[in-house]
Amino acid sequence: MILPKLHQAGKEALQNIWRFKTRHLASLAVVILAFLSVGLFLALANNLRARAVEYGRDAAVVFYLRPDLPASESDLVAQQIRSAPLVAGARLVDAEEARRRFLARFPDLEPIVESLGRNPFPASVETTLRNPAAPSAEVQSFIAEVRRNPAVEDAVFNREGADRIRALGRLAEAVGLAFGGLLVLASVVIISGVVRLNIIARRDEVEILRLVGATNAFIRGPFLLEGAILGVLGSLAALALVALAGRFFPAAAGGALGPLGEIIGFRALTAAQAALLVAAGAAAGLFGSASSLARLLKI
């Protein structure tokens, strides 16, 4: 009993979408735009979060050594750091390796580095912590203790950088949800308008349906489905575009961004995020349709 009615409602909804394809295409474009912006910001936030985890996993604290320090003393400092209970590992990076790393990353700057006549990069000890999420006070006291060694010139606590990137990810997510939310609201209004036009165009049919004893659900079903289909199609298309952006953005624009390319990028949405986006599309469509039905089809 329910299946034939559902089948009928689905058929009606698809026929309607096809019959008024121009207006449906226009509303679909708005839905896609709305969910594309939400999707892109989420993908950007995913990338930032992943980078933050990577940076957090990398050298958590880097101790820079005095430039004139003999190699034997550098080894001693590295050993002292390794022996600390907080430390999982410590790797000595000599001045030459530091120089090589810099030039690999910024090859354009090689002439400037060469023109200095000496290696400007200090040796360092890259330290990873046993517990990357250890309380800051504990880590800071460990850093202070190491810095008391006159061989150590400076220390950089990288977790702060990772935390900043993570915060940037949260910001991107919030901006995406706020901006995308506004666009989703706009798509609800557009869907509502389209469904409203369809109800007016099909008033004669609605009248007949009422006369032959159709229930409210039977009359409203196709219109509701119409909105839901638009929402789902729009969000699915947006998901596909986000996936394409994730795949082709690094090749198309990654180079132009230089070192920023590492953090400005799109990482695939998780299954839960994708499902949520499609569900939000369906909900936006249903809500848009329902608002028109409430105004125009008081049965």
């Binding site: 329910i2 034939p4 009615k5 009928q8 004669d204 049919e205 007949i208 006369l211 032959v212 004893g213």
Partner: peptide, 24 residues
Amino acid sequence: FRLVPRRRVFDNVAVALQVLGTPA
């Protein structure tokens, strides 16, 4: 008459049974 011009004769008549969920 109040027939729906966009629908064929069959569909115009069938609507009274579709609302009852009559099998195809």
